[in-house]
């Protein structure tokens, strides 16, 4: 979490979309989704979707009922943060980002993303990779958080996966475009459910990055990949405002 502070400040840059839409109350209008689970609504962000699921939820083991209950409890908490009119966008975003950082297991994500190539990294390189990759994700996913303010999130369903993993499926409903399907894959790590993959419209973040890293590492050594990540992070727009 050494880099957490960097991303806690916010990007004040107003966007056209933000000025167009205010936080809107939920509506059931275009929902044609057969939910058997309780539908949660409210203005939220893509990152909030991650937060909805997991923050600080613990369970004794990889038990589906416990996971579901935990997800529901967390959902309520985060929706409360999002609906809190006392908070401005920046404060709300910071809350959400903190929760997301706590919800993702970056070590597992890094291991899965590098797969067998993980072994080619020295311990120091592994640690650096985890930090740089975390920073990369935070920069690229956090930079448009303003644009998600007019969206709301519905938990569609959930299901058990192999290895005791759990998938929770959500829909991000947007006012002037089709809804986006976002699935979260969870794993109980040391008794805590953590997000280990985000699958947007069927595209897994893990698989996508693994494909990129594999192609790079097929021709280069870990040091080269780390340098690419470092350079990318240096040149990409920082989230911190000051």
């Amino acid at each position: 979490m050494t880099r957490g502070t960097k991303s806690q400040a916010t990007n004040p840059r107003p966007t056209r979309r933000e000025t167009q839409h205010t936080l809107r109350p939920s509506s059931t209008r275009h929902v044609a989704w057969p939910t058997r689970e309780t539908r949660r609504r409210g203005a939220a962000t893509l990152l909030a979707a991650a937060a909805l699921l997991l923050a600080g939820t613990t369970t004794a083991g990889a038990n589906g009922d416990a996971a579901r209950a935990a997800v529901r409890a967390t959902t309520t908490d985060v929706l409360a943060v999002l609906a809190d009119q006392e908070l401005d966008t920046a404060a709300r975003r910071q809350h959400v980002e903190n929760i997301v950082f706590a919800s993702l297991d970056f070590t597992t994500v890094s291991r899965l993303v590098l797969a067998r190539n993980w072994r080619r990294f020295s311990e120091a390189q592994q640690a650096e990779f985890i930090e740089e990759f975390k920073s990369h994700l935070s920069r690229t996913y956090g930079r448009n958080i303003d644009n998600y303010s007019d969206q709301r999130i519905e938990i569609a369903s959930d299901r058990a996966e192999a290895r005791g993993d759990w998938t929770v499926r959500t829909r991000v409903v947007r006012p002037s475009a089709d809804a986006i399907l976002v699935d979260y894959r969870l794993r109980a790590i040391n008794g805590t459910w953590k997000i280990i993959d985000i699958i947007v419209e069927g595209v897994s973040l893990i698989a996508n990055f693994r494909s990129q890293f594999q192609e790079i590492l097929a021709n280069h050594d870990p040091a080269h990949l780390l340098k690419l990540l470092r350079d990318k992070n240096l040149t990409s727009e920082p989230i911190a405002a000051g």
Partner: peptide, 28 residues
């Protein structure tokens, strides 16, 4: 990935068995 997901219809609620090895890090 997108095309594969569309073929098996995104909203079908079944475990993603074909991609299971993606989440295996036991070799670690």
């Amino acid at each position: 990935q997108r095309r594969q997901a569309l073929i098996r219809d995104l909203d079908v609620d079944e475990p993603t068995t074909t991609e299971e090895d993606l989440y295996d890090d036991s070799w670690n």
